[in-house]
Design a protein around this nucleic acid. Structure first.
Length: 282
DNA sequence: CTTGTGTCCTGTAGGC
DNA sequence: TGCCTACAGGACACAA
């Protein structure tokens, strides 16, 4: 599932191939994947736009286009952006949208589960269907994401800390993988109520979030099922993860088997020994 | 405002 | 073999 490090990797690796290239054509195989506007307007308005800039905000990838337009892509669970040459005649399975670029490259939006979306906006007018982009909180790698920030966001909340880490208005770009990893590094059980965390624990969690996101970027993301980089290669963070996708395997610190719990209908992995459910006061 | 639950989607895995 | 169900989960709508 693409989170901040995965989307950052995609952004970085697409850049050299798409900046200042013109979108000469587009094919929409699955109109559902166009979140805004209609398929008709999307196809009509995107043609001949030039990709001026690429950036990432939270888990959103933003392609700034000529004529004050922007293409915004959210990969959700299983979305990929693959890049290949026109003359390679590659037809990826589950390809939903395909962009033809002026350098004879094809940018392919592949999304088996059809939850990912592509939006085309104009003059910075963000439609309601994209309001998550406007309400993003700080990203853990932001220098302003510090103890004060996180503490103020969570200290009075009764929800579990895991739930709040997945909340994009609190920690933009964090998803299931990196929230589990950060909670492990901070020694905090994912089911802890946020308002029971000590100052020390929130400080540890702040540091852990910054660390796992930065490590994820260095590793070019985590490949466990769907995520691939634009050239089809895999990320490597999964080889260093402490808990993610390791249920049943021994904890790398204490050998206790990693467990999982369902939190907000999400599978959450943790070490029952390193991450105690009881409040710890320092 | 906050919290928890249901929904969108479809391929895959496991049960029988 | 083949049908069925549960599951994966990010974001959002909605109810309480």
């Amino acid at each position: 599932m693409p989170e901040l490090p995965e989307v950052q990797t995609i952004c970085d690796e697409l850049k050299p191939y798409v900046i200042n290239k013109r979108i000469v054509g587009v094919k929409v195989f699955r109109p559902k994947c166009i979140g805004y506007p209609s398929k008709y307007s999307f196809v009509k308005n995107i043609k001949n736009k030039i990709i001026k800039q690429l950036q990432r905000k939270g888990k959103y990838l933003i392609l700034n286009l000529s004529d004050a337009a922007a293409l915004i892509i959210h990969l959700r669970l299983s979305g990929k952006l693959l890049l290949f040459k026109e003359d390679e005649h590659i037809l990826p399975k589950y390809e939903r949208v395909r962009f033809y670029l002026s350098n004879k490259k094809i940018l392919s939006f592949v999304e088996p589960r059809v939850l990912g979306r592509i939006y085309l906006i104009k003059d910075n007018n963000v439609p309601d269907v994209l309001k998550g982009l406007k309400t993003l909180g700080l990203e853990p790698i932001d220098k302003n994401f510090n103890f004060q920030y996180l503490s103020q966001k969570i200290k009075k909340r009764t929800a579990t800390i895991k739930t709040l880490l997945l909340n994009q208005t609190i920690a933009a770009g964090v998803g299931n993988i990196y929230s589990d990893e950060a909670l492990f590094l901070a020694g905090i059980h994912p089911l802890r109520q946020a308002n029971t965390l000590s100052q020390c624990e929130i400080k540890k969690l702040t540091k852990a979030l910054k660390h796992v996101i930065a490590s994820g970027i260095k590793s070019k993301g985590t490949t466990v099922s769907d995520y691939l980089r634009p050239n089809g290669s895999e990320g490597t963070y999964q080889f260093q993860s402490f808990v993610f996708a390791r249920e049943g395997q021994p904890c790398r610190i204490c050998q206790t088997p990693i467990e999982f719990a369902k939190i907000q209908n999400r599978r959450t992995r943790f070490c029952p020994n390193c991450q105690k459910l009881t409040t710890v006061n320092y």
